[in-house]
């Protein structure tokens, strides 16, 4: 059976940008998140993680930048994904606008809190 791919013109608006965003950010998160999970959840494990571990990990700049990138891309990907799922069940224009604003605010608050913590943290004097 041969299949012909149907070519359609997609309006290049915000939704097209969001669609592409999920795919491009997905490739990056695939790398960042899998390394993160492999190290923290499987190799190190929660029983070896405490504030001293975090202090050691955030001693230099590399893992802070890494964690910031993971936070920014994964959280943006996830919040947009949540928006796309909910938009399948919420059809009113006003309700969707409210949904977008609520998710945008949650996104901004969590990203700011996480970013401040990553770069503001100074290890306690040992």
């Amino acid at each position: 059976m041969t299949t012909q791919t149907r070519k359609v013109e997609v309006p290049q608006g915000w939704e097209a940008f969001a669609w592409k965003w999920m795919r491009y950010s997905g490739v990056l998160i695939f790398i960042l998140a899998w390394i993160h999970v492999l190290i923290q959840d499987i190799l190190v494990g929660v029983y070896n993680i405490d504030i001293n571990y975090v202090a050691g990990r955030w001693h230099g700049g590399f893992w802070r930048v890494y964690d910031f990138l993971l936070l920014f891309f994964a959280f943006s990907h996830g919040m947009n994904g949540t928006r796309q799922v909910l938009a399948d069940y919420i059809h009113g224009a006003g309700a969707r606008r409210a949904l977008n604003w609520i998710l945008l605010i949650i996104w901004a608050v969590v990203v700011v809190i996480g970013t401040v913590a990553i770069f503001g943290f100074t290890p306690p004097a040992a």
Binding site: V54, I113, G114, V116, A117, F121
Partner: peptide
């Protein structure tokens, strides 16, 4: 997870 880890600072 972001909020609990942010507690190291806050």
């Amino acid at each position: 997870h972001v909020l609990d880890t942010a507690a190291v600072y806050f």
